[in-house]
Amino acid sequence: MSDTFAMIEQVGPRGMMTLRGDLSSTKLKNAATGVAGVDFPGISECNCVDERGIAWMSPDEVLVITPYDEIAKDLKRMQKILSGTHHLLANVSDARSVFMISGAKSREIIAKLSPVDLHPDSLIPGQFRRTRLAQVPAAFWMRDKNTFELICFRSVADYVSTLLHNAASAGSEVGYFQ
Protein backbone atom coordinates (compact mmCIF):
# COMPACT_ATOMS: atom_id res chain seq x y z
CA MET A 1 0.00 0.00 0.00
CA SER A 2 1.02 3.61 -0.46
CA ASP A 3 2.52 5.78 2.29
CA THR A 4 0.24 6.62 5.20
CA PHE A 5 0.48 9.38 7.81
CA ALA A 6 -0.47 7.01 10.61
CA MET A 7 0.24 3.36 11.23
CA ILE A 8 -2.63 1.03 10.34
CA GLU A 9 -2.34 -2.63 11.11
CA GLN A 10 -4.74 -5.48 11.26
CA VAL A 11 -4.17 -7.26 14.55
CA GLY A 12 -5.60 -10.40 15.95
CA PRO A 13 -7.42 -12.63 15.67
CA ARG A 14 -8.88 -11.66 19.03
CA GLY A 15 -11.20 -13.73 21.21
CA MET A 16 -14.59 -12.04 21.57
CA MET A 17 -17.75 -13.12 23.33
CA THR A 18 -21.12 -11.48 23.08
CA LEU A 19 -22.86 -11.53 26.44
CA ARG A 20 -26.48 -10.46 26.66
CA GLY A 21 -28.66 -10.30 29.72
CA ASP A 22 -29.52 -8.06 32.64
CA LEU A 23 -26.38 -5.93 33.02
CA SER A 24 -27.32 -4.99 36.58
CA SER A 25 -27.12 -8.63 37.68
CA THR A 26 -24.16 -9.30 39.97
CA LYS A 27 -23.70 -12.80 38.57
CA LEU A 28 -23.44 -11.48 35.02
CA LYS A 29 -21.02 -8.75 36.06
CA ASN A 30 -18.89 -11.26 37.94
CA ALA A 31 -18.77 -13.59 34.95
CA ALA A 32 -17.54 -10.82 32.66
CA THR A 33 -15.07 -9.21 35.06
CA GLY A 34 -13.81 -12.60 36.25
CA VAL A 35 -12.72 -13.56 32.74
CA ALA A 36 -11.63 -10.14 31.47
CA GLY A 37 -9.87 -9.01 34.66
CA VAL A 38 -11.04 -5.40 34.28
CA ASP A 39 -13.81 -3.31 35.89
CA PHE A 40 -17.30 -3.57 34.45
CA PRO A 41 -17.78 -0.65 32.02
CA GLY A 42 -20.40 2.07 32.38
CA ILE A 43 -22.68 3.22 29.56
CA SER A 44 -20.76 3.67 26.27
CA GLU A 45 -17.45 2.79 27.89
CA CYS A 46 -14.75 0.23 27.33
CA ASN A 47 -12.24 -1.08 29.83
CA CYS A 48 -9.33 -2.77 28.14
CA VAL A 49 -5.92 -3.95 29.34
CA ASP A 50 -3.65 -5.67 26.81
CA GLU A 51 -5.71 -8.34 25.10
CA ARG A 52 -8.47 -8.50 27.68
CA GLY A 53 -11.37 -6.15 28.18
CA ILE A 54 -15.10 -5.49 28.34
CA ALA A 55 -16.97 -3.14 26.04
CA TRP A 56 -20.50 -1.80 26.60
CA MET A 57 -22.49 -2.56 23.44
CA SER A 58 -26.09 -1.75 24.41
CA PRO A 59 -28.25 -1.60 27.57
CA ASP A 60 -28.40 -5.42 27.58
CA GLU A 61 -25.17 -6.42 25.88
CA VAL A 62 -21.44 -6.36 26.52
CA LEU A 63 -18.53 -7.64 24.48
CA VAL A 64 -15.96 -9.63 26.45
CA ILE A 65 -12.52 -9.58 24.85
CA THR A 66 -9.86 -12.21 25.57
CA PRO A 67 -6.77 -13.65 23.84
CA TYR A 68 -7.85 -15.78 20.86
CA ASP A 69 -6.24 -19.02 22.01
CA GLU A 70 -7.88 -18.84 25.45
CA ILE A 71 -11.43 -18.31 24.23
CA ALA A 72 -12.58 -21.93 24.68
CA LYS A 73 -11.38 -22.00 28.27
CA ASP A 74 -12.84 -18.56 29.05
CA LEU A 75 -16.16 -19.44 27.45
CA LYS A 76 -16.47 -22.53 29.65
CA ARG A 77 -15.58 -20.50 32.74
CA MET A 78 -18.27 -17.96 31.98
CA GLN A 79 -20.87 -20.60 31.20
CA LYS A 80 -20.16 -22.15 34.59
CA ILE A 81 -20.57 -18.85 36.47
CA LEU A 82 -23.72 -17.96 34.50
CA SER A 83 -25.52 -21.29 34.82
CA GLY A 84 -29.03 -20.76 36.12
CA THR A 85 -29.05 -17.08 35.04
CA HIS A 86 -31.07 -15.95 32.03
CA HIS A 87 -28.43 -14.93 29.48
CA LEU A 88 -27.02 -15.41 26.01
CA LEU A 89 -23.32 -16.09 25.53
CA ALA A 90 -21.80 -16.59 22.10
CA ASN A 91 -18.27 -16.87 20.76
CA VAL A 92 -18.08 -14.30 17.95
CA SER A 93 -14.27 -14.25 17.58
CA ASP A 94 -14.23 -15.51 14.01
CA ALA A 95 -16.87 -12.99 12.92
CA ARG A 96 -14.74 -9.97 13.81
CA SER A 97 -11.59 -8.22 12.65
CA VAL A 98 -9.49 -5.83 14.69
CA PHE A 99 -7.46 -2.86 13.47
CA MET A 100 -4.98 -0.67 15.34
CA ILE A 101 -4.56 2.88 14.12
CA SER A 102 -1.71 4.72 15.77
CA GLY A 103 0.02 8.03 15.30
CA ALA A 104 -0.42 11.65 16.32
CA LYS A 105 -2.91 12.21 13.49
CA SER A 106 -4.89 9.00 13.91
CA ARG A 107 -8.01 10.98 14.91
CA GLU A 108 -8.21 12.42 11.44
CA ILE A 109 -8.55 9.03 9.81
CA ILE A 110 -11.60 8.08 11.87
CA ALA A 111 -13.02 11.59 11.57
CA LYS A 112 -12.96 11.32 7.79
CA LEU A 113 -14.91 8.08 7.80
CA SER A 114 -17.50 8.28 10.58
CA PRO A 115 -20.11 10.83 11.72
CA VAL A 116 -18.62 10.92 15.23
CA ASP A 117 -17.42 14.05 17.04
CA LEU A 118 -13.71 13.25 17.32
CA HIS A 119 -12.57 16.48 18.94
CA PRO A 120 -9.93 15.67 21.58
CA ASP A 121 -12.28 17.14 24.23
CA SER A 122 -15.22 15.00 23.10
CA LEU A 123 -13.74 11.60 22.43
CA ILE A 124 -11.32 10.48 25.10
CA PRO A 125 -9.68 7.16 26.00
CA GLY A 126 -12.12 4.87 27.82
CA GLN A 127 -15.11 5.71 25.66
CA PHE A 128 -16.52 3.09 23.35
CA ARG A 129 -18.30 4.22 20.21
CA ARG A 130 -20.39 2.00 17.95
CA THR A 131 -20.95 3.73 14.66
CA ARG A 132 -20.49 3.34 10.95
CA LEU A 133 -17.30 3.62 8.92
CA ALA A 134 -18.38 4.89 5.51
CA GLN A 135 -20.96 2.22 4.63
CA VAL A 136 -20.36 -0.51 7.22
CA PRO A 137 -20.90 -0.88 10.97
CA ALA A 138 -17.82 -0.60 13.17
CA ALA A 139 -16.87 0.24 16.74
CA PHE A 140 -13.77 1.85 18.16
CA TRP A 141 -12.16 3.00 21.35
CA MET A 142 -8.90 4.72 22.23
CA ARG A 143 -6.05 2.83 23.84
CA ASP A 144 -4.29 6.11 24.55
CA LYS A 145 -4.49 9.60 23.09
CA ASN A 146 -2.82 8.54 19.85
CA THR A 147 -4.03 4.97 19.38
CA PHE A 148 -7.40 3.71 18.22
CA GLU A 149 -8.52 0.12 18.30
CA LEU A 150 -11.30 -0.59 15.83
CA ILE A 151 -13.46 -3.66 15.35
CA CYS A 152 -15.65 -4.55 12.39
CA PHE A 153 -17.24 -7.61 10.86
CA ARG A 154 -14.66 -9.89 9.25
CA SER A 155 -16.73 -10.04 6.08
CA VAL A 156 -16.02 -6.34 5.50
CA ALA A 157 -12.42 -6.30 6.78
CA ASP A 158 -10.95 -5.80 3.29
CA TYR A 159 -13.27 -2.86 2.69
CA VAL A 160 -12.39 -1.31 6.06
CA SER A 161 -8.67 -1.84 5.46
CA THR A 162 -8.89 -0.08 2.10
CA LEU A 163 -10.95 2.74 3.62
CA LEU A 164 -8.47 3.32 6.41
CA HIS A 165 -5.43 3.27 4.12
CA ASN A 166 -7.10 5.61 1.67
CA ALA A 167 -8.14 8.06 4.42
CA ALA A 168 -4.59 7.94 5.77
CA SER A 169 -2.73 8.41 2.50
CA ALA A 170 0.26 10.69 3.00
CA GLY A 171 -0.40 14.28 2.06
CA SER A 172 -4.15 14.08 2.75
CA GLU A 173 -3.90 15.39 6.32
CA VAL A 174 -6.56 17.94 7.18
CA GLY A 175 -4.89 19.22 10.35
CA TYR A 176 -8.21 20.14 11.95
CA PHE A 177 -7.38 18.77 15.40
CA GLN A 178 -3.85 20.20 15.59
Binding site: I43, S44, W56, S58, P59, P115, D117, R129, R130, R132
Partner: peptide, 9 residues
Amino acid sequence: YCGIDADET
Protein backbone atom coordinates in the same frame (compact mmCIF):
# COMPACT_ATOMS: atom_id res chain seq x y z
CA TYR B 1 -30.12 4.53 26.03
CA CYS B 2 -26.46 5.17 25.29
CA GLY B 3 -26.46 8.97 25.59
CA ILE B 4 -24.72 9.39 22.25
CA ASP B 5 -25.53 12.27 19.91
CA ALA B 6 -26.28 10.18 16.87
CA ASP B 7 -26.21 11.56 13.38
CA GLU B 8 -29.20 10.85 11.15
CA THR B 9 -27.08 8.45 9.09
